[in-house]
């Protein structure tokens, strides 16, 4: 039973990591190409979840909802980029933080305006609602395995996009020298809007998928946003590979810490106290991990920026 529980927690950690990767990939891409720190990313995650829940409730189909979440988040991202973000590329980080912080207020309150304060619920599609038997005899929800699979697919897809396509070539060129690619005739403004919308769509996808295992509510994106920041700081800002490694590391350390630490403390103190102490320390664990990694490598594991 203990091994079964262990494997289950390991998979939960993997699933959290994969979801964080979808968020962190967009954030790190946007920072790498445009040099922009984007707090709105958590709001785009929320937009994806709400679009999925609303369309799924209206049509009865999760799959249509999933498509809607991609479209809505990408569209919201593109509109925000065209109206606001575009004016921030030349500004310092302080202005970017502030403007995107203001956008969070607008997005959160706007969503509450449209959908009310009560959380929405999104059902897992029937096709994925079963469970799979794990070695050791435990049952694991199929849907969570599907999330892991989607994350792996997206990671491979992103890698192909960036290393094998013309758009990817432009993104890489934009990371190393944005003036030069403009001079070579690449429409930089459109490229930036595309990258922003791509990042937004990934965030929306993450929001929609997680929406089916948690409730869909205003503010759901903010804890995820901050975890995604930890991920890209650990991985090295601007590096997709770093985002992947960082996301898996954070997902696994967080989940396993919450699972194992109370047990470890249970060896030296009574169970209820061990639960409290272990739980409190587990909630700080990924930040301690970040501190240790930064103490050794201040620019993250795979620093992309010089």
């Amino acid at each position: 039973m203990q091994t079964a529980l262990f494997i289950e927690q390991l998979l939960n950690g993997l699933q959290l990591g994969v979801m964080l990767f979808l968020m962190a990939a967009g954030l790190t891409l946007i920072f790498g190409v445009m040099g922009l720190i984007n707090l709105t990313h958590g709001s785009l995650y929320m937009v994806g979840a709400f679009a999925c829940a609303a369309v799924a409730a209206w049509t009865g189909s999760f799959w249509l909802g999933l498509i809607a979440s991609l479209a809505a988040a990408a569209a919201a991202g593109a509109v925000v980029e065209l109206l606001v973000i575009r004016r921030l590329y030349g500004r310092d980080h302080l202005d970017q933080v502030l403007a995107t912080f203001a956008l969070i207020l607008v997005f959160s309150e706007g969503t509450r305006w449209l959908f009310g304060s009560f959380p929405l619920y999104l059902d897992i599609p029937p096709l994925l609602s079963g469970a799979v038997s794990l070695p050791g005899g435990a049952q694991y929800p199929l849907y969570r395995l599907a999330i892991i699979a989607v994350g792996v697919l997206v990671a491979v897809g992103l890698w192909l996009l960036i290393s094998r396509t013309r758009l990817g070539m432009r993104i890489r060129a934009g990371e190393s020298d944005r003036e030069m690619i403009g001079a070579l005739g690449v429409d930089v403004a459109t490229l930036y809007t595309l990258v922003f919308a791509l990042g937004a769509a990934l965030a929306g996808l993450a929001g929609a998928m997680v929406g089916a295992i948690q409730s869909v509510q205003v503010g759901m994106g903010e804890p995820v946003l901050i975890l995604a920041f930890v991920v890209i700081v650990i991985g090295g800002i601007g590096s997709i590979k770093g985002a992947l490694v960082g996301a898996l590391l954070v997902g696994l350390v967080d989940t396993m810490g919450r699972f194992l630490l109370p047990q470890a403390f249970g060896l030296v103190m009574n169970a209820s106290q061990a639960g409290l102490v272990g739980g409190a320390i587990a909630s700080m664990l990924i930040y301690l991990l970040m501190a240790v990694i930064l103490a050794v490598r201040p620019r993250g594991l795979f620093a992309a920026q010089g």
Partner: peptide
């Protein structure tokens, strides 16, 4: 030890650590 955008995110993360504690 870091600077720029790293500094922003790290200070945010440490504050968040104390918040969760």
């Amino acid at each position: 030890r870091t600077g720029g955008v790293y500094f922003i995110m790290i200070t945010l993360a440490f504050a968040q650590m104390i918040f969760y504690f």
